[in-house]
Design a protein around this nucleic acid. Structure first.
Lengths: 213, 213
DNA sequence: CAAAAATCTGATATAGCGTCAGATTTCTCT
DNA sequence: AGAGAAATCTGACGCTATATCAGATTTTTG
């Protein structure tokens, strides 16, 4: 399924086992720092120190911190196809809300796990950075396709109005999913718990996708 | 209505007219650069050069580029109360969809105008930067309150399910609104026009707020 | 185990940040 | 108008982090 992509250093040479491991540890350290502070505040020296190596080593594998972040975003994206599969569950009758809930909960879990990297990915993508746009598109396309497919089914069955565009609605729903984990702390100001959030989102998803109240 | 807040420089002294003008030009230059490249890539020297002054002058008025961005976010937030007022339009009968459409269109316009600054504001807020969190909360609260109020009306009238939490739903809808302009270019890949987007969002907003299909 | 390949790092030039003392401009008062 | 005061601006500089490269160190190979 996935061909072994050969990792290379900055000069294009393939990496041996030791190098692969060093690179991986640099990525882990970067992820950890990214979840603590903003990219701008991350010093390459610090990443290196965390791994017990020198800045020069970092530059052997990555052009800059941004490139390391890009690789992390690619790793996170690998979880998406599994997540998209959840849409294959039933959308008929009482079980439909459970399908919807599972998807929402899984999506939030994915975000909680990769929060810092995904936020950065989206910022860069929104700012027009092509490489991050590509990663985001690759990550979201399976989800968008699935939502859009369900909406089209709903429209074909006459349950969902044809005034909405399936892809636009899919993007809107994906936006909700993407932004929820980021908001959930602020929402506590309004007395909204995480469960409220999951349930509410699940209802909006279900309603928009199937037309059911 | 709004008391004149006295502007001050880094050492706390009030600004005279010349200084106010210089500060304003520095802010404009910052906004312009922010819309061209990422914060990380903005050099203070460059902002200064654009205004025909020196870096030291910039530091007279702002602690760093982030602070200038914060001030820009505060300026953008001043548009929100007017936007929130749009929710006072009718939500009864056929006109309801027009109210919804107007809100969505205005929100997107606001984002198109302040895109770079708002994206940065959200990234910083998501990363836990208190000052940006405050600005975002101040900006969004009027909108959230309005949406939540409509939903509660819908629930009281028995049109909207009580399984959803009004504030969570409001936040979800605000997320859609906030993220749409950022997406609209990528959505063209899927053949979604801006009008599709406005219409689809307006429908989701209407449906969630009033329970109407 | 010596030579070759792979990997790592000390040293460094380069560049932007942020500060401050003092220069320049504008204002005030007679 | 013009001297002194206040406001505003800037040149110069010390500091920190980036990013590179030649060469040192470690691992692999035959």
């Amino acid at each position: 399924m996935d061909a072994e992509k050969p990792l290379v250093d900055q000069s294009g040479r393939a990496l041996g086992p030791r190098a692969v491991q060093t690179r991986e540890r640099l990525l882990e350290a970067t992820a950890e720092l990214l979840s603590k502070r903003s990219v701008r505040e991350i010093r390459v020296v610090e990443i290196a120190r965390k791994v017990g190596t020198s800045p020069a080593t970092f530059y052997q594998y990555f052009k800059d911190v941004e490139e390391a972040a890009l690789r992390l975003a690619e790793q996170a994206a690998e979880e998406m196809p599994a997540l998209a599969k959840l849409f294959d569950g039933t959308w008929q009758g009482k079980k439909a809300i459970e399908t919807s809930r599972t998807i929402v909960a899984e999506f939030i879990r994915h975000w909680d796990e990769h929060r810092a990297v995904l936020l950065l990915r989206n910022l860069e993508a929104d700012e027009g950075n092509r490489r991050f746009m590509r990663v985001r598109r690759n990550a979201l396309t399976p989800i968008l396709e699935q939502i859009a497919a369900r909406i089209k089914e709903g429209q074909a069955a006459g349950q969902v109005t044809r005034d909405i565009n399936a892809y636009a609605a899919a993007a809107a729903l994906a936006s909700i999913l993407e932004r929820l984990s980021a908001y959930h702390k602020e929402l506590e100001h309004f007395g909204v718990t995480r469960d409220d959030l999951v349930e509410t989102c699940a209802r909006i998803l279900l309603q928009t996708v199937t037309g059911k109240a």
